[in-house]
Every structure is written in structure tokens, then in C-alpha cells.
């Protein structure tokens, strides 16, 4: 059996489900309909086949996921990924952190930010705007979430407007959601 990965990495692991995925050949019409769109338009993975056990939720969740991460305007793509990584860091979802840190690296063409985040977390020595976004994402992901007016002001102080703050909130909270699926319904293992 492949080894479970427990340390943060930007190398995307394989995700091994704890729950039996839906068998596509025997899927209901509603399940097939729910699988027409996939998160980030990737292939139909074992993960979405697990989620297909609840097709009504999946049918809404996939366009919501794609909209929060990719709809135009507002917060940049890279900074939405940073919110996703902040949540995945707090919730220790190694798989989500790997996928979204590597997307951040692809967009920014700079792997040094994620290296520092994985090493030092909130204390990472990164530029003030990225640091404010990371710090907000970490506080929002705690339980209970610890966001005050000062935290919102800290984002405004580095130049985020209300639209960008809403978009960061959506991407960070969305990963509070995604982490609670990926990190509980399966686990990351080395690719064989």
C-alpha cells in the first residue's frame, strides 16, 4: 500500500478515497448530470466520483467552486489561490495545499513564496500584501473564525478593496469546505 503523505509539498500526490467512489458505468442520470462539469475542468477523478454519492449538492458545488476561483474581476487568480492555501495550511489538507500552491507557482512563476509559507506558515517572510492575505486566510480558517474589523483594515491597508476582500473570503471559506471533504473522505498518497 502506498505511503500516506503527511508533509506539505507542491508535488501533487495521488488521492486515495476512504469511501467507495460511484461506478461511472452504473451511475444514475442525476449523477451523470452532476459530473458534466468538474472542478477546474479536470478529468472525472475518484474524488468527484465519491462526491457523486450526493448529486444534488455536487451539481451546485462544482459551478460555485469554479466561479469562486475563476470568475473575472476582483481579486487576482494568484491571490485567490493564496486564500485556498491558507485554509489548507490551517486544516492540514496536504492534497489541496499541493494543488493550489502549485497553481499559485504557475501563475506567479515564483516558487519562493510557497516554500516560505510551507516552512514558516503565518510567519513567512513574504511581501506585505501576500502576508496580509495569508494572515487573514489563516485567521478566517480557525474555529471559531477570528476576524475583526482590524483584520479587514489590515487588508485595506495593503490595497485590497471591498470586492477583493469578498473574493478572498469566498476562496478561503470555499477551501474550509473543500478541505473538510478531501481531508476526511480520503488521504494523499505517493503516486505509484
Amino acid at each position: 500500500m502506498s505511503r500516506v503523505i503527511t508533509k506539505f509539498t507542491t508535488r501533487v500526490p495521488h488521492w486515495r478515497p476512504h469511501v467507495t467512489p460511484v461506478d461511472l458505468d452504473h451511475a444514475s442520470d442525476e449523477q451523470r448530470e452532476a459530473l458534466r462539469e468538474t472542478p477546474s475542468n479536470t478529468k472525472i477523478s475518484e474524488y468527484v466520483l465519491v462526491l457523486a454519492h450526493d448529486p444534488q449538492a455536487l451539481t451546485l458545488r462544482t459551478p460555485l467552486f469554479n466561479g469562486i476561483m475563476y470568475d473575472p474581476g476582483g481579486l487576482s487568480r494568484a491571490e485567490r489561490e493564496l486564500g485556498a492555501v491558507a485554509a489548507s495550511f490551517v486544516n492540514r489538507c496536504i492534497y489541496c495545499a499541493a494543488v493550489h500552491a502549485s497553481r499559485y507557482n504557475q501563475i506567479t512563476k515564483d516558487s519562493s513564496v510557497m516554500q516560505k509559507v510551507f516552512l514558516d506558515g503565518e510567519k513567512a517572510d513574504i511581501d506585505p500584501r501576500a502576508k496580509a492575505i495569508l494572515s487573514f486566510g489563516v485567521k478566517l480558517s480557525l474555529c471559531p473564525p477570528e476576524i475583526t474589523a482590524e483584520d479587514v483594515d489590515a487588508l485595506r491597508a495593503v490595497g485590497l478593496d471591498s470586492q477583493e476582500i469578498l473574493d478572498l473570503t469566498l476562496s478561503t471559506a470555499l477551501f474550509g469546505w473543500a478541505n473538510r471533504l478531501m481531508h476526511t473522505l480520503g488521504e494523499p498518497v505517493e503516486k505509484s
Binding site: P144, P145, I147, V152, L166, T169, L170, A173, G176, W177
Partner: peptide, 10 residues
């Protein structure tokens, strides 16, 4: 847990 966090910031 998602809904709670969006509501918190709003």
C-alpha cells in the same frame, strides 16, 4: 463551515 466563515466577514 463555509457559510459561517463568509457570514463572519460580511
Amino acid at each position: 463551515n463555509y457559510q459561517i466563515r463568509v457570514a463572519k466577514v460580511l
